[in-house]
Each structure stands twice: as C-alpha cells, then as structure tokens.
Design a protein around this nucleic acid. Sequence first.
DNA 1: TCTCTGACTGCGT
DNA 2: AACGCAGCCAGAG
Length: 121
Amino acid sequence: MPGKQINDIPATNDFFEQVMAVTRMIPKGRVSTYGAIAAYLGAKRSARVVGWALNKAIAPRSEEAVPAHRVVNRNGLLSGKMHFATATQMEELLAAENITVIDDQVVEFDEHFWDPAEHLL
DNA sequence: TCTCTGACTGCGT
DNA sequence: AACGCAGCCAGAG
C-alpha cells in the first residue's frame, strides 16, 4: 500500500497556517496550484485567499520558509512572480529544481503538477 | 462598519 | 474561442 501519509498540517483553524503547511509539502521539482491547495483544504473556491496567504508566507527563514515558487495558477503561469524579491526570482528558483519556465509559464506543467489531494490523506 | 481589492476559478454569454 | 461576471475570504483604508 502506498504508505504516503503526511500530516504536517497543524490542527489549526487558521487557513493561512494550513496553506503554508500544504505548500511546504510540495516536493522539490514539483508544482501545485492555488485551486488544488484550496480544494484540499476544503475550500475550493478560495484560491485567491491561498495566494494571499502565500504572499504573507514568503519568509527569509530557511526552516519555516514556504516554497511559494512551487505554486502557480491553474495554467501553470507564474502569476505570483511579481511578489518575489526580484522579477526573476520565482523563475530562477524553479529552474534550480529542474523546472523549465518559458514566458512565465511552466513547461510541461501537467507532468510537474503535484496534487495534494492525491498524495495527502 | 462598509467597501474595495486581490499570487484564482468556473460558468455563462 | 474570447470575454465578462460572480463567489470565495482576509486585510487595508
């Protein structure tokens, strides 16, 4: 059986905390979407709030850092890149994980897509 | 307290 | 197929 259980999600009612927790679970070299995270948290129509949460989640701390660069919109577009330190940081972070980005869009997005609902129970 | 906006999405025209 | 609109929720003015 797929012994894949990850329960790093804190038992908190803080939606932001949960968003950050799920985002931290996105494996290196994979990407997810705002909608997928929102849906996993039981609020599939709150994708915008996920984005807002990630914006606030961008922290310089390595331990508690949230790989917000692994979260893109449903089209694989780096819709949040402007919120990073520099205009190219998000793309560079992805490139460092072997994820090719062309014209602000993840190449072969479907193959890199990681759905929390499929890996987390 | 009310109103507007936003790292989104899905549905209707 | 392209464009517009409404829903969702939290923060700022």
